[in-house]
Design a binder for these strands. Structure first.
Length: 863
RNA sequence: GCCUGGGUGGCGGAACAGGUAGACGCAAGGGACUUAAAAUCCCUUGAGGCAUGUCCUCGUACGAGUUCGAUUCUCGUCCCAGGCACCA
């Protein structure tokens, strides 16, 4: 066996063996217990980045571990292949999005294979293929038939640069999440999924997702944003119109002194018509429409509004309330109208102060004088109702229900629930996406494409450049089609679907990727789904995960699956970060543009010393990126995998360190040399697996340590995915083994040594599969059998040694320690503690008040 | 502002039911091997003190508290990261 560890050849060799033997291909087998491990599939941007490597390494360890534990493990990989970067790149490089995408996929597949992940490549999915999106279109038609999809004209977030509509979730702080340009409002006909129909169910199940990080379910709950309250009708003075408001505080209705409408509210125009406010209102509405939705919602703008020249009447006390339009009233939340109670709502308070409107206190906190409430700010807390007619004197918490019941009796209001969540707009005016399978007919309206005509193939000859309309809209051969219902000339829908649609059901398709007669084979889905463990970035905590949960409910409603939640357990791994380096003249520097001398980076362009900046998430804009490919080339995949796991537990951010990588490489090298020293002596040696008691002491210690390591590694992987501590444990074991020298010819230790070395190979194999397979073979084992080996069990009789270390405290401070037989009773432990020289120094001449003994662990003497 | 996390040596991180704080690794310093360097191996390494020890004091963001005993539990404060935010 070579003394030196050369990862290059070894890794290529095992990868080709795994590929040839289809080592990780699986089939549904009802006789075996399944485990579905899924990592979020990547967008084929061109190269694998280090975040992918971390994500997929974590997943691969779990997949390999579960396989070794006997599960039938489904571990697939594929490509989230539709999306705008392909289009942008195609325009920039004068190529076709398909070519760009497929080239990228080929390159990234090669990179993934070089990392040795245990995927069943036979199940590879590419979402931009008709094979895949035809079933998405099929599902769209089913949803259309069940009225789960609809079309409406609505304001949408529009990005001028990307020429596309964005979902609310895709707008970050008022800007496009992709390009960062400001987003503005545009009115378009859009297709929507009725996700709000499932709002309550999605919310309710958040509490049942016990295998998810609380962080994520909390974010989803906030996103759904349920509010309980009432809807109440306010009659408009002098007309038969009523304004319906939603409020969470019906208990404050006696304090409502004015009304605020959203600028888009349908009554704004009618009510202001013919009044002297008409002009001012029109101007305000116009100004608001030009301001982007994001600006209106995001900035803590000053509250402003305009009186619309009409009044309504407070239904509980007949008070005449002026009606305003206000910039903070949102048409898409509640009813687009707010009953304003300035004494008890901060926004309303500021608005009232600004425009000199009445403030009436109706809730009195305990022990406070009415004159002191709402003097400088609104009081939003609980208290006793005052100035509230028959309700005065009631606790406001009870008052809420009482007021609602009163409304219901009088027929002017009712209990109501509102959600922040809105329906999912899926129309995109882009080329590189799945066509929406609808035909517009003048006579029949919107007609779904019949099942037999699916898929609606995305034509390859679209002209991507040239603005205004969607590229598909400029393609007559695509647009012109006969109406399937009446045969008259019709027009195809030219919008494509949001790419979040593809990623909302790909995990089901993985179960039967080659099924050509249905969206998936129900039997295999029944066997594999739901996903037992899903792993991905926390940046998908709201959109992707909520959409996937929604889609699974749709499939459930359509009778296609018998579960509602797609992902039983979720792990969100942290980001990969690295320090930034900044040169005064050249800005941010790539690692290869810096040279370190005595820990100070120098810019290779100008030779000047550069500044080390904050540690930040790796990104191209900060240039603090690492190319995984280059790392694999110089250190090998095993080292890269090992470092990704060792540097931090998965849920935390990982700080990249070149020296850390170096350290991981050295560790693998140490393991390699440890084997090299022993391989000749132990090749034919059987591992010792019997009772530890039969061994001489030095061998027994090694044997016990090995079993303890097996337990530690097993627990760390199984219970917490804390691979960093699992690796530490193996390092400790290997450090101990390194002290044993084969040259001593100590036959008593050989069997134990063989057992320990075998164990190291097995324990490390999910983490560093190539080197361990190589070492396994070198030890005379059948080549390639390590990855199919049973995960080792540990002997209970090895977990605790027969000696225990007991520490002695005096008044809680550590003063001594001693070893004692494990079986020793409290009295014996106490006696030993009191004999300890150093302990005696501290207790001499003092009164002992109390002695606390924790068996086998600790004595605390209290003076 | 609200909701999540988090704050431990020079650094990444351990301590997974309140019981030895700093495992493991990195970096640094010293030594061995070598003509030399690299690689490798060994030793030291939280801060301070002196009486140099199986020693003492301090120490897990800060301040209180509960406890025989707190990195761990409670309350308050500060800071960092992520998410949400005029939601009626």
């Amino acid at each position: 066996m070579n003394q030196k560890y050369h990862p290059g050849k070894i890794e290529a060799r095992w990868q080709s063996i795994w590929e040839k033997t289809k080592a990780y291909a699986v089939t549904a087998d009802p006789a075996r217990e399944k485990y579905y491990l899924l990592e979020m599939f990547p967008y084929p941007s061109g190269r694998i980045h280090i975040g992918h490597v971390r994500n997929y390494t974590i997943g691969d360890v779990v997949a390999r571990y579960k396989r070794m534990c006997g599960y039938n493990v489904l571990h697939p990989m594929g490509w989230d292949a539709f999306g705008m970067p392909a289009e942008n790149a195609a325009i920039a490089n004068n190529t076709h999005p398909a070519k760009w995408t497929y080239d990228n996929i080929a390159a990234m597949r090669r990179e993934l294979k070089q990392l040795g992940f245990s995927y069943d490549w036979d199940r590879e999915i590419t979402t931009c293929t008709p094979d895949y999106y035809r079933w998405e279109q099929w599902l769209f038609v089913k949803m259309y038939e069940k009225n789960m999809v609809y079309r409406k004209e609505s304001y949408v977030n529009w990005c001028d640069r990307c020429q596309t509509v964005l979902a609310n979730e895709q707008v970050e702080a008022g800007d496009c999440w992709r390009c960062g340009d400001p987003v503005r409002q545009k009115k378009l006909w859009q297709w929507f999924f009725r996700i709000t129909e499932y709002a309550e169910d999605l919310l309710e199940y958040c509490h049942k997702l016990t295998g998810w990080p609380e962080k994520v379910t909390t974010m989803q709950k906030n996103w759904i944003g349920k509010s309980t309250g009432a809807e109440i009708d306010f009659p408009v003075a002098g007309t038969s119109e009523v304004i319906r408001v939603f409020t969470t505080r019906p208990d404050t209705i006696f304090g409502a002194t004015f009304m605020c409408l959203a600028p888009e509210h349908p009554l704004v125009e009618t009510l202001s018509a013919g009044t002297d406010q008409q002009q001012a209102v029109a101007e305000f509405v116009d100004r608001m429409s030009r301001e982007s939705h994001a600006d209106r919602v995001m900035d803590n703008q000053e509250k402003e509004g305009v009186f619309i020249g009409a009044w309504c009447e407070n239904p509980v006390n007949g008070r005449r309330m002026p009606i305003y339009i206000a910039n903070f009233a949102l048409m898409e939340y509640g009813t687009g109208a707010v009953m304003s109670v300035p004494a008890h709502d901060q926004r309303d308070y500021e608005f009232a102060k600004k425009y000199g409107l009445d403030i009436i206190v109706v809730i009195l906190p305990e022990g406070v004088d009415e004159a002191d409430v709402a003097q400088t700010e609104a009081y939003a807390g609980d208290g006793v109702m005052v100035n509230s007619g028959d309700f005065s004197g009631m606790e406001n918490t009870a008052g809420k229900s009482a007021v609602i019941e009163y409304f219901e009796k009088k027929g002017i209001g009712s209990r109501s629930i509102t959600y922040r969540l809105r329906d999912w707009g899926i129309s995109r005016q882009r080329y590189w996406g799945a066509p929406i399978p609808i035909i517009h007919c003048e006579k029949c309206g919107t007609v779904p494409v019949p099942e037999n005509d699916l898929p609606v193939i995305l034509p390859e000859d679209a002209d991507l450049v040239g603005g205004g309309k969607s590229p598909l809209g400029r393609l007559d051969s695509f647009v012109n089609v006969d109406c399937p219902a009446c045969g008259a000339p019709g027009r195809r829908e030219t919008d494509t679907m949001d790419t979040f649609v593809e990623s909302s059901w790909y995990f089901e398709r993985y179960c039967s990727p080659d099924h050509h007669t249905a969206i998936f084979d129900p039997e295999t889905v029944k066997y594999w789904m739901p996903v037992d463990q899903y792993i991905g970035g926390v940046e998908h905590a709201v959109m992707h995960l909520l959409y996937s949960r929604y889609f699974t409910r749709v499939l459930h409603t359509l009778g296609l699956v018998d579960f509602k939640e797609p992902f039983t357990r979720l792990l969100t791994q942290g980001m990969v970060c690295k320090e930034t380096v900044h040169c005064k003249t050249h800005g941010y520097l790539y690692p290869e543009e810096t040279q370190y001398r005595q820990d100070i980076p120098y810019c290779t362009k100008c030779g000047e010393a550069a500044e080390i900046g904050r540690v930040e998430k790796m990104s191209k804009s900060k240039k603090n990126v690492i190319d995984p490919n280059a790392l694999v080339e110089s250190y090998g995949a095993d080292t890269v995998r090992l470092f990704c796991l060792f540097a931090a537990p998965p849920e935390r951010d990982l700080e990249w360190s070149e020296q850390g990588v170096e350290g991981s490489f050295r560790f693998l090298h140490r393991i390699w040399r440890l084997y090299a020293r022993w391989v000749e002596r132990l090749e034919k040696q059987k591992p010792y697996t019997k009772d530890p008691a039969a061994l001489p002491e030095h061998a027994r210690e090694l044997y016990i340590k090995t079993h303890q390591t097996i337990k530690k590694v097993t627990d760390d992987i199984e219970q917490r995915f804390h691979f960093n501590t699992a690796i530490s444990a193996v390092m400790e074991l290997s450090n101990q083994l390194n002290l044993v020298e084969p040259e001593r010819n100590d036959a008593a230790v050989d069997g134990v040594m063989r057992f320990a070395l075998d164990s190291i190979a097995v324990l490390l194999s999910p983490i560093v599969p190539h080197i361990t397979e190589q070492l396994w073979e070198a030890m005379g084992n059948e080549p390639g059998t390590l990855c199919n080996r049973q995960w080792p069990a540990y002997r209970e009789d090895c977990l605790a040694s027969d000696k225990r270390l007991v520490v002695v405290q005096v008044n809680g401070k550590l003063r001594g320690r001693f070893e004692i037989d494990a079986g020793a009773d409290d009295a014996a432990i106490k006696a030993r503690a009191l004999e300890d020289d150093n302990v005696v120094r501290f207790i001499e001449g003092a009164d002992i008040k109390k002695i606390i003994v924790v068996k086998n662990k600790l004595v605390n003497i209290v003076l």
